[in-house]
Design a binder for these strands. Sequence first.
DNA 1: CGTTCATAGTGAACAACGTTCATTATACTG
DNA 2: CAGTATAATGAACGTTGTTCACTATGAACG
Lengths: 216, 216
Amino acid sequence: MNAILRRKQHKAELKTQILAAAREIFVRDGYESFSMRKLAQRIDYSPGSIYLHFKNKEELFESLVEESFDRLLRALNRLKNGHAHQDPVAKLKTGLRAYIDFGLRNPNDYRFAFLLRRPLQRRPYKVHPAFDVMRYLVGRCVEEKRFRPVDVESTSQALWAAIHGITSLLIQRPTFPWVARRQLIDQVINNAVDSLMLRPDQEEETGVSHAQPSGV
Amino acid sequence: MNAILRRKQHKAELKTQILAAAREIFVRDGYESFSMRKLAQRIDYSPGSIYLHFKNKEELFESLVEESFDRLLRALNRLKNGHAHQDPVAKLKTGLRAYIDFGLRNPNDYRFAFLLRRPLQRRPYKVHPAFDVMRYLVGRCVEEKRFRPVDVESTSQALWAAIHGITSLLIQRPTFPWVARRQLIDQVINNAVDSLMLRPDQEEETGVSHAQPSGV
DNA sequence: CGTTCATAGTGAACAACGTTCATTATACTG
DNA sequence: CAGTATAATGAACGTTGTTCACTATGAACG
C-alpha cells in the first residue's frame, strides 16, 4: 500500500541524484564533452536506465535549465519584495546587476537558457516570469515619476538586451581585453538606465561613465 | 610546370566549394545536425577527403566564421569612410544599426561568430578590427565634444554589449513577444548613446523612447 | 510459502558521428 | 612509357544517443 509510495519517493530521489550528477559533469567537463554514458557510469547505472527518468538528453537538459531559472527567479523575487523603502531606480539597477551576476556565477545555466541553440525551440522556457519582474521594476520607476513616461514593455526589452549582451559576451569571450569587469557592468547599467530618468542632469551614481580616459 | 599551379588553383577552388556547401547545409539544417559525412556526401566526395583541406570540423567552422567576419568588417569600413560630412553621433548610430542589421540579415554568420560555443577558444578571432571601427567612431564623438569626456574603451565595450544583446536575442528567441523590431532597435541604440551626449536635453532623434505607454 | 505480476534495470544492438590510415587511382614529369 | 607525387578512397576505430527484448526484484495475494 504505502510501499508503492515509497517506490515513488525512491524514484524521485534517484531522479534528483541523476540531475545532480549531470550538473556536476556538465560544470566540470563542459557541454560538448558531456555524455549520457558518462553520466550513467558516474551514477553506477546502465545507459538505458537514465531513459526511465528522462525522455532523452534534451529533456534532461531542460530540467537542469528549469532548476537554474527557478533559482534566478527566486533571487529576483526576493529582491522585488525586500528593500521596500528603496528608491525604485536603485532597485531596478540592483535587479539588473543581480541578473548579470547570476549569469556570470552560473555560466552553464546561462548558456543552457539563452546561448545554446535548440534544434526547434519547443517550449518558450520560463523566461517570462523573470521578465515580469523586469516589467514590474520598470513600471514602478515610471509610476513614481523617476522615469520619463516611456513605454514599459519596449523599455524592459531594451534593458534586457543590454544586460543579456554584457552577460553573454563576458561568458563567451573571456579572452577579449575587457576593461575592469565591475566598471564595465556599471557602465552598461548606468548607460541603459540613466537615459530614461526624468532628470538626467542628476548625476550621482553614474560615476564611472565620467571617468577620465585611462587608455586601458 | 604551370600544371602544379593549376593543381593548386583547383585545390583552392575545391576548398571554397566545400565551404560553400558547408555553409549551405549549416544554414538549412542548423548547427547540430551538420555533419562531416553529410557534407562529404553533398559534394560527392568521401568523408576522408575533407580532411585534405581542413584539419577537422572545428577548423572548417573557423574558416566559415572568418569569412563572415570579413563581410561585417567590410560593411563597417564602408560606413566609416563614407558619409564624411555627417555628424559623428549620427554616424555612430548608423554604425550600430549596421552591426545589428548585419546580424539579423546573416543570422548564421552571427551565430558562427558569437553564439556558438567553442570548446577551448583558440585564436581570439578577428573581432578586433571590427571593434576598432567602434573605438574610432566613439573617439570622434568625444573629440568633437558631442559626448561627455567618457573613457573611449569602456564606452565602446558597453555599446557593443548593448547591440550584441539585442542582435543575439532577436536571432535566438524569435518567438518571444517582441515589440516592433525597428522601434526596439532604435530604443536600444538611443538609450545606449543618448546618455553619453554632452547635452542630453536635446531630444530630437530619440522619438520612440518618448512614446506613450501602449500596453503591447 | 509459493505464485503472480508490475516495475526497475540491464546490456547488446543500431545507426550515426568525427577522425585516421593503409591502400588505390590519378595525373603530371622526366 | 616508367616513375612519382599527390588526390581520393573506404574500411576501420572508438565514440555518441537511443531502443528494446530480456532478466532481476520485491510487493501482493491465495
